[in-house]
Amino acid sequence: MSTARPALEVVAELRREVERMQGAPARQSVPTHAALEGLLSLETGGVYGVDSASLALLLMAGPSAAGTWCAVVGAPDLGVEAAVAMGVDPHRTVLVPDPQDRWLEVTAALVDVVGLVVVRPPAAVGEGDAARLGARLRKQGCVLVPWGDWPRCDARLTLETARWAGPGAGDGHLRSREVTVALRRGTAPRRTRDLLLPAADLTVQQARPDVAPVRRREPAIVRSAG
């Protein structure tokens, strides 16, 4: 009897595998940073383009903090300390800073094993390469975050405006930054979200949380006459 349960588990595992190979439940949601809630939710097999290091780190932070392995290809200048501050687990992060002309092969090899790959393509990416990599992403259930131009993005996040708070004319230091992040998804209208990236306490949060303003109640003061 002791072998019955493992056998059942194996059957269930194989069923899942078959379903996955047939492409049935192609997309599953991936933990996404709380600051992006309501704007963007990452899904396996998705390609999410970004235009700056902090946005790449922000997309990486959600899955990484949840224990997913991540990889960064072709970005030797990534700030490790900023990544850790944002919630990236360095022990589950693989860096390939300088893959040179083999970056596409390296990315493909990493897509097979990790949950999210940030890639900074050194050259223009062909439609064919992007399509092949996209198929592999969907098969392996990985998320791709191209930092730079990419021909087939499911969504693109860009930093539109940035206002730093903290420094004056020689005094203070950089404390927080209010940014407007714009999301373009296919032909859908552009959506924006104001974020503190980072806030003064080094977290990332929404600048104006979408909550109904709390109505202030008039203080009930009982005046005693006379």
């Binding site: 300390e81 693989v94 390939v96 090899a109 097979d112 990790v114």
Partner: peptide
Amino acid sequence: ERVERGIARVQGLVGHDGVLAAQV
């Protein structure tokens, strides 16, 4: 373990010291 194996493959492409781990 699966990840380690994949990384070995990447090391085969870019060399042993082409794959890095980061710490603060």
